[in-house]
């Protein structure tokens, strides 16, 4: 299992800088916002956490469709499924998700505080947002894995995966953004939405890989 994790992280970093493209997309989305909304610093600070969340959400959906498709194209998916008698397939999927998160999504979380600066957010709000991203983005990857598995045999699954997954991650977005706001606006407590976010992440960590494993078994041909 560790071998699979290391292999996938290596591939994520080596194969044409997939991680860099994700961060770049994140940067570009955030950079476009002030052009659309106007450079009003107060307004930007107010919508900052929401913008960061939307940017991170879209950027982490970006490479998700390739999660299993690459393995399917070169035949390694057969290897993973055939190995399922030793390593439970959901666990294999879980490890693949973790590797994908480490290589492609963790850089987004690291970049978030810098972008918070550009959105004129207060340090407290920035770090609260980064923290919620740290807790919330794995949920996106886990549930996205289910979408990627469903669409694995489709030739142009990319957009479809995003369409399938976006409605499912709305709860994550709700609690992530409300926790980020709660940290900076005084009367709202930070902890309840944040704990809900963590609970969602753990819930998806179970449901996502299970669903993905079932879909992968059915999709192999």
């Amino acid at each position: 299992m560790l071998a699979l994790y290391i292999r996938d992280v290596k591939l994520g970093i080596r194969a044409g800088g997939g991680a860099l493209v994700g961060v770049l997309f994140f940067l570009a989305v955030i950079a476009v916002a002030p052009f659309a909304i106007g450079p009003d610093a107060n307004l930007l600070a107010r919508i900052g956490p929401a913008m960061l969340w939307i940017g991170a959400l879209l950027a982490s959906l970006l490479g998700l469709d390739r999660l299993f498709q690459v393995d399917r194209e070169d035949g390694s998916l057969d290897l993973l499924i055939l190995g399922s008698s030793r390593h439970m397939l959901p666990l294999t999927v879980f490890v693949k998700c973790l590797a994908h998160w480490t290589a492609s999504v963790l850089p987004l979380v690291v970049a978030a505080p810098v972008l918070g600066l550009l959105m004129n957010m207060s340090p407290l709000a920035t770090f609260a947002t980064a923290l919620t991203l740290l807790a919330g983005t794995p949920a996106i990857v886990f549930i996205g894995a289910a979408g990627a598995a469903v669409a694995v045999s489709l030739p142009r699954g990319g957009l479809l995966v995003s369409v399938l997954v976006l409605p499912l991650v709305i709860p994550v977005l709700i609690f992530g953004v409300s926790a980020s706001y709660a940290a900076s606006t005084q009367p709202d407590p930070f902890l309840p939405p944040f704990l809900m976010l963590c609970a969602l992440m753990l819930f998806f960590a179970v449901i996502g890989p299970l669903a993905a494993a079932v879909a992968l078994k059915g999709a192999s041909d």
């Binding site: 800088g17 860099l20 002030p34 610093a41 004129n120």
Partner: peptide, 26 residues
């Protein structure tokens, strides 16, 4: 940070550098 002409255009330059970087690596 303010989103004024100079800062924004330099930020765009930074994005372009990263884009070229990603392209040459891809």
């Amino acid at each position: 940070w303010v989103w004024d002409g100079r800062l924004t255009s330099v930020f765009v330059l930074f994005l372009m550098y990263l884009g070229i970087l990603a392209l040459t690596r891809a």
